[in-house]
């Protein structure tokens, strides 16, 4: 199954989204969370993101969802640090974090492949709420 990794500056944000997405998928999808620094400040940590990607990957690929600013840079760095073995199998979705995470998790839970999960996550930015 395609894995999902959620990245935010805030641990609380990713834990909350994890809760929401797990509820909708019955806990079937492997979802990793990376948020805040090791000493509890707001921030992102490329090495934590890398470890979470490794943890949720079962060979089908991993879609990474990020919030703002350094989350993007840290996620890009994490993918670089993973090296050739993961090349093309891990991508950052150009999507809003909450909506993208839910859309991607649900899509992964029905067994869709990596490209489809990524696409559905990115389509979440076009979602009309009203």
């Amino acid at each position: 199954m395609v894995g999902i990794v959620l990245v935010s500056h805030s641990r609380k944000i990713v834990e909350g989204i994890y809760e929401l997405a797990s509820q909708m998928t019955g806990g079937k999808v492997p979802i990793g969370v990376a948020g805040g620094t090791q000493d509890g400040r707001l921030g992102t940590d490329a090495t934590e993101i890398m470890e979470e990607i490794k943890k949720v990957d079962d060979g089908e690929g991993v879609v990474v969802l990020v919030d703002i600013g350094s989350a993007v840079m840290s996620a890009q760095m994490a993918i670089e640090l993973l090296g050739e073995e993961y090349e093309g199998k891990v991508k950052i979705a150009d999507a809003p974090l909450v909506e993208g995470a839910i859309a991607a998790s649900v899509e992964a839970s029905i067994g869709s492949g990596f490209d489809k999960v990524l696409l559905v996550a990115e389509e979440a930015k076009k979602l009309n709420k009203l």
Binding site: T44, D45, A46, T47, S70, M77
Partner: peptide, 18 residues
């Protein structure tokens, strides 16, 4: 560099780390 990447938290972590 690697230590900055894993401890700074903000954008300066990956930037100075790199």
């Amino acid at each position: 560099g690697m230590t900055l990447v894993s401890t700074v938290g903000g954008a300066s972590g990956p930037l100075y780390g790199t």
